[in-house]
């Protein structure tokens, strides 16, 4: 009787949790994210201390323009939603819509990174490099580290799309898509904090 319930429960488990080997990878990835939280926390702390230390450079109020940042935010939050839709399709075993939503996620991510690069280039063209102040150094490093994470995620999801097309939906590919989604949502949360602690608070002070 108990074995029967167990096998029933197992049957109901999502694909990526069906093999113990894959569940280890998922736990490992959660721990990596925990470690990454500390990494970003350190950068947030540095930024918080350096926010007002602008030396001869621009202040946050002068530097930030909220319009493009709001567009970036909408792009990234939407990509998190489409990433969720991809997982939704994966749970139903539908590979083609899964791939399609991942591609949409990738494109939105590219849009975000493109806008951020444009923002940085414009900032430097107008205000000069980060050499001017500790504030600029901290700003570019915190936001840039997030941007690098997103760029890596784009590379990752591109490779995932190829793997899904080649190998189909297996416990291994499912686990990879699932850990990618954890990563992508995590970056979204970090961005919410950046939007609040960097851009909004910079506009208030």
């Amino acid at each position: 009787m108990t074995t029967r319930t167990n096998s029933l429960q197992e049957a109901r488990l999502p694909l990526e949790f069906q093999e113990s080997h894959e569940t280890l990878s998922i736990l490992g990835f959660w721990l990596f994210l925990a470690s990454d939280v500390v990494l970003f926390s350190s950068l947030f702390a540095v930024y918080a201390v350096y926010q007002g230390r602008v030396a001869a450079g621009p202040t946050p109020l002068q530097l930030f323009s909220l319009g493009p940042v709001l567009t970036e935010t909408i792009l990234l939050l939407t990509s998190s939603f489409t990433c969720g839709l991809a997982i939704f399709m994966m749970r139903r075993g539908r590979t083609r819509p899964l791939v399609a939503w991942l591609v949409v996620t990738l494109l939105l991510g590219l849009g975000f990174v493109g806008m951020e690069v444009h923002e940085f280039v414009t900032d430097v063209a107008v205000w000069g490099t980060w050499h001017q102040s500790a504030f600029l150094s901290a700003f570019f490093t915190l936001v840039g580290t997030h941007g690098l994470h997103v760029s890596f995620g784009i590379l990752w999801v591109a490779a995932l799309v190829v793997q899904l097309l080649r190998y189909g939906l297996t416990p291994t590919t499912a686990r990879k898509v699932y850990t990618f989604s954890l990563y992508w949502h995590f970056l979204d949360i970090i961005w919410v904090f950046i939007f609040t602690a960097v851009y909004l608070s910079g506009k208030i002070t």
């Binding site: 490099t129 980060w130 001017q132 600029l136």
Partner: peptide, 26 residues
């Protein structure tokens, strides 16, 4: 990760001209 950041900031200062630890620049 805290060490990663401490080392990275120093490296950025030395190789890429940021000013995390330059007092004159804040």
């Amino acid at each position: 990760p805290a060490l990663t950041i401490a080392l990275a900031l120093t490296m950025l200062d030395r190789l890429f001209g940021s000013t995390f630890f330059t007092i004159a620049h804040g």
